[in-house]
């Protein structure tokens, strides 16, 4: 039976290199996740305001970011800004910018959805009980909204981790690129390594995202 990549994987530091590549991908996604959760929450709250101008601007931002494939956004930031402003952004920085823009848009919509899903009678009952506006926000609305929000935002995290695989296309050396390099380097000794190596990458992504998805599912069920 020809070698399908297992021996290549165990040769030298190859597996450690692949894990390092996954680390690069995860680092980009986690930095973007942190920024997105923060900014997304802020924008989401802004979106529930009644000011028509801020609403229109946020809506436009949200719709544009959401309808464009993330890959197009990556190209716009990575190649477009170089041309338009002469910036020389590194691949990592461009991807953090893009995923933060995208994650913020998605997160703000989740926050808006969670806040508006609290029925009006909750606000009214809180007012009837004599709670001030701030009190009703902190003690009545937020606890309920957060419960709806947390499973959804955990799901967003897995989506962002998966989307990070795209950074390969703007030249960031992450797990897929490392896998490509390893396969190329061993092309003579084991020409069939691509099967095993790419399968390993697939499984690595799976084991990075699966526990997070399970957590989201569990919380969703528990807090329903």
């Amino acid at each position: 039976m020809p070698d399908l990549g297992l021996s290549v994987l165990l040769k030298g530091k190859n597996f450690a290199r692949i894990l390092g590549g996954l680390g690069v991908a995860l680092k980009i996604s986690l930095v973007s996740v942190a920024i997105s959760l923060l900014l997304g929450t802020l924008l989401g709250i802004l979106m529930t305001w009644k000011n028509p101008l801020s609403r229109a601007i946020l809506r436009l931002y949200l719709e544009f970011i959401r309808i464009m494939p993330q890959m197009v956004l990556l190209f716009l930031v990575y190649f477009g800004t170089t041309r338009a402003f002469g910036w020389n952004l590194s691949g990592e920085l461009s991807s953090v910018i893009v995923f933060s823009l995208w994650g913020t848009a998605e997160m703000s919509d989740l926050v808006r959805g969670a806040l508006t899903s609290i029925p009006a009678h909750q606000y009214e009952s809180a007012a009837a009980l004599g709670l001030s506006k701030r009190q009703s926000y902190f003690f009545v609305v937020l606890p309920q909204a957060v419960r709806r929000l947390i499973p959804l935002s955990i799901n967003l995290i897995t989506r962002m981790i998966k989307t990070t695989s795209l950074v390969l296309m703007i030249g960031v050396v992450e797990v897929l690129k490392v896998a490509q390099q390893i396969i190329e380097a061993n092309r003579m000794s084991s020409p069939n390594a691509a099967f095993g190596i790419y399968l390993t990458v697939l499984l690595l992504y799976f084991f990075a995202c699966w526990p997070i998805s399970l957590l989201a599912k569990y919380l969703e069920r528990r807090w329903r």
Binding site: L4, T158, K162, T163, T164, S165, L166, L168, L176, A179, I183, P191, N192, A193, A194, F195, G196, I197, Y198, L199, V201, L202, Y205, F206, C209, W210, S213
Partner: peptide, 20 residues
């Protein structure tokens, strides 16, 4: 399929499968 990126799936399908 829900917990892996399409790009990695495609790489496996396109570059991996022909090897077997």
């Amino acid at each position: 399929s829900r917990n892996t990126p399409l790009l990695v799936q495609l790489f496996f399908l396109y570059y991996g499968l022909p090897k077997i």
